[in-house]
Design a protein around this nucleic acid. Structure first.
Lengths: 137, 137
DNA sequence: CTTATAGCTTACGTAAACGTTAATTATAAA
DNA sequence: TTTATAATTAACGTTTACGTAAGCTATAAG
């Protein structure tokens, strides 16, 4: 075994294309401390598959309406050394809270679905009524 | 049967308290055309149970990261006369798209949960490692 | 009837999450 | 090696979703 397996890396625009976000967005997440890609000799960002996975995770959180601050507390800052117990325990504690939140959202997701289905039903009824009225003329 | 059954109404602050949002937020949603409460002789807003239910629906959508514009297209504008087929059909079309989106989010919700669980696992392992190191000293 | 709330409109303020130049440097292609 | 892309930082702009304060009116309580 050697250490340099799978060192396929990506540029910022490759990542942007694949994840369908702007390069600005990626840099913004870095500013916020959510990712920490490497740099080339010429100071350009290089992303590993691991960096990419982390970005996907961030985007997934976003799709559920979590703020970037929430997300950073959920998955931890990219540059924390993970050395202090306190830091880790804080992340754990936050993770538990978010897990509970996710449970709640799972339930609400069904409710939202039902609401939309109910709206659809009413709209269809309304359409039928209108069509009947038209036929009456 | 008569028409004036169940006419229990609410003031804006009653609604705000119950739904745990500000009165400003409620008025803002009205500005955006998402709700259309009645008015008293003195021009104050009065909310029916139906208005309240609609607000709950809006809030539910928000919890999933939908924008207010998305939501208004999902559940339809409050003041549309629901008279034109085109309008209704547009809402229906949008509703279908959103239902599909919800299906996708349901799947992603599990993925997000798993990600957090994986993070937790790693954190716990890290904690154990640190504790062992401490015992070694 | 007075007065304390509560509500109304108008309008400026703000935080989050990027968008959009601009000026400069790296890298890839010819 | 020149040149066309692509990337970098810095900084100001924008949109969404409200917050907040001001000045005025309605309604409930005493």
């Amino acid at each position: 075994m050697n250490g340099d397996k799978n060192v396929r890396t990506f540029t910022i625009s490759q990542i942007a294309d694949e994840l369908d976000i702007s390069t600005r967005t990626i840099r913004f997440y870095e500013e916020k401390g959510l990712i920490k890609p490497g740099r080339t000799a010429g100071n350009q960002r290089i992303y590993t598959a691991r960096n990419k996975a982390r970005l996907k995770l961030i985007l997934r959180g976003k799709r559920f309406g979590f703020s970037l601050d929430d997300i950073s507390e959920m998955i931890g800052m990219a540059d924390t050394d993970m050395d202090e117990l306190a830091q880790i325990e804080k992340s754990l504690y936050f993770g538990e809270a978010k897990l509970k939140e996710i449970q709640d959202r799972k339930k609400e997701l069904s409710l939202l679905e039902q609401d939309i289905l109910a709206t659809r039903k009413k709209l269809l009824q309304r359409i039928n009524k209108i069509r009947k009225e038209i036929n009456h003329v």
